[in-house]
Amino acid sequence: MYWYVARRLAWAFVATFIILTITFLLLEVTPDAQAAQLQFQAAQGGGSAEAAREAYETRRGLDAPLWERYSNYMINVFTLEWGWSDTRSQPVVEAILDAYPYSLMYGIPAVLISTVVGIAIGLYSATHQYTLADYAGTFVAFFGISIPNFWFGIILLLVFAVELGWVPVLFDPNVPVFSVANAKQLVLPVFVLTTAAIASEMRYARAEALEYVNAEFVKTAKAKGADGRRILTRHILRPALVPLSTILVGDLLGLILTTSYLVEVVFGIPGLGRLSLDAILNQDTALVLGTTFIPVLIAVIGNLLQDLAYTILDPRIDYGDR
């Protein structure tokens, strides 16, 4: 098992390395929008477009040989020297540090609520298969998977902010973190993120729990007179948690990262998603890269933890092979 863990760790590094290399190559082959803009300006001002491009490249260190640029890029990525954001006039890392608390503010409650509620509903559905409640649960799951999050957010804003006026339409980043006003303006983002996450969690939870509902050891426990709650928590939930815990990390991460991006745009929360979109719209390449590295990094680490969790939680699996 230690050999497996070591190899898995090494693979995480290799994968990160390859992804960064591909990103670097992509940047190399695509025309630089900023350089093009500078050239255009120079040409309009009567100057030489060629000279403007050369000046730009010298300033950015783009005239160095490919290999040197590549190694500089790699070193910078790993030492968190992620460059300077032109549009925000601050280092990229600083901009990210400014933004991420806003993402956590609604992200953490949403993950906690959706995990607990999702697993609870999934378990209930599995133990009460083909009842009305099960069908209702399945319907909620389909609803959650199918509804476009950004549109759902708009509808909720329309109803609860514009029509009913219960929550503010615009997010105010200046209110204290732990205050009623902040909680009020975070209710809708948390709700949208929760519906997205809860749907897939309850589907997984239901499917996993179903495998154990009719297992021999559950029947034995029932025969010995264990009460329903004990059977549910000790005999069904425990084995089901093993695959669930890994699914929660791997599959939900992508979902939550994507949803949070759209949620921030809809509700105007100045978090990482908003920062990234502004960077894309303003052609701020350094900031685009920085804000893309964050989810990639989270995904690599999440996948690593997912695989490692499996080795610890489920000793039955043989790792001699892979």
Partner: peptide, 10 residues
């Protein structure tokens, strides 16, 4: 490993 949506974005 690369989150799909962010790959699209990039």
């Amino acid at each position: 490993t690369f989150p799909t949506f962010f790959l699209y974005l990039l």
